[in-house]
């Protein structure tokens, strides 16, 4: 039973992930008074790209096309660490969140060197910024999870997330709120959303993630599109379980609630993107260090 619900959840998360990108775009379109692209547009884009040929730069080596493959492998494993509803994942083990953070890092490492592989100064610039911001994001992420570990006394991601309850929010809401706000900034940074990065800009100098993949095309680019959707799902569902600890004592319904609540986060991201501009590059680190500080504060409150 547990393995069945795990398998269903796992497959459906992999399938549903691109939908949240649509929800963000629909929200943005709504606030801009536009119709917006159809709900299934990300799927159409990915399918279209998968069926194209590819153009490679003469400068590049195998690193360029290996990077999305490794990235997808990392994220699929990271998805498997997420709990099902309010029952732990069958892959859960002590320290799995460290593995998750380091799988993100492995993926990032390959995207950075893939960007340097092209020899383009734009992509080098994007790679440099990615390395910089990701360092700060990772600190906020792991310290936030450390605060959770300290609070719940467990060392596996599923354990932490399933132990958060309404009761815990009443007792130590401060710690949870600090961690959740830090994780929200982590989500915005890791998924390249405003105010850290602007996914819509067409000027290479202002971009981070987008500029790193200028020379990817065809199936490689399809994988990259899919990757960014999956990343949103992973961090989004961690965040959702932290802020919405409600349960109806049925794994299926709980999981359905998580799917719905991540859509809520997507709407929130869309709202932010409609209401504010991207931060200046030199103020982004301040926001990210701020996120780390929130996590550290949550941790220190937990030590008390």
């Amino acid at each position: 039973m547990i393995s069945l619900s795990f398998a269903v959840t796992f497959v459906s998360s992999l399938a549903v992930a691109p939908l949240y990108l649509s929800i963000i775009n629909k929200t943005k379109a709504f606030f801009a008074g536009r119709q917006g692209p159809p709900l299934l547009q990300p799927y159409i884009d990915i399918w279209k790209l998968l069926n194209k040929g590819a153009v490679y730069s003469k400068t590049t080596t195998s690193i360029l096309f290996v990077s999305p493959v490794i990235g997808l492998g990392c994220l699929i494993i990271a998805t498997a660490f997420l709990p099902v509803g309010r029952t732990p994942s069958i892959f859960a083990f002590d320290g799995d969140f460290i593995v998750l953070a380091y799988l993100f890092a492995l993926m990032r490492f390959f995207f950075i060197i893939a960007a340097l592989d092209t020899g383009s100064s734009f992509e080098g610039m994007g790679a440099s910024r990615e390395a910089y911001f990701a360092t700060l994001t990772e600190v906020a992420f792991i310290l936030g999870l450390a605060a959770m570990a300290k609070k719940t006394g467990t060392l596996c991601l599923s354990g932490m997330l399933t132990q958060i309850s309404g009761e815990m929010w009443k007792q130590s809401g401060g710690i949870l709120a600090l961690t959740a706000s830090s994780l929200f900034i982590v989500l915005l940074s890791e998924c390249a959303r405003i105010p850290i990065d602007d996914p819509n800009t067409h000027l290479e100098l202002t971009m981070i993630h987008e500029v790193m993949v200028l020379d990817h095309s065809g199936p490689d680019f399809a994988l990259i599109h899919y990757l960014s959707c999956l990343k949103f799902w992973i961090i989004g569902s961690v965040l959702v379980r932290m802020v919405l600890p409600a349960t109806v004592h049925s794994a299926w319904l709980d999981q359905a609630m998580v799917f719905a609540a991540v859509a809520g986060i997507a709407v929130a991201v869309g709202l932010i993107e409609s209401s504010m501009a991207r931060l200046k590059l030199n103020t982004v680190p301040q926001l990210l260090v701020g996120a780390s500080t929130l996590s550290a504060l949550a941790l220190l409150l937990g030590l008390r």
Binding site: G53, A54, T59, T60, F65, V69, P219, L223
Partner: peptide, 17 residues
């Protein structure tokens, strides 16, 4: 990936500059 790319056109160009 190889399956998808198998019988499609793969070309070489200079880096987008």
């Amino acid at each position: 990936r190889r399956l998808f790319l198998g019988n499609r056109k793969v070309t070489s160009e200079v880096t987008w500059d």
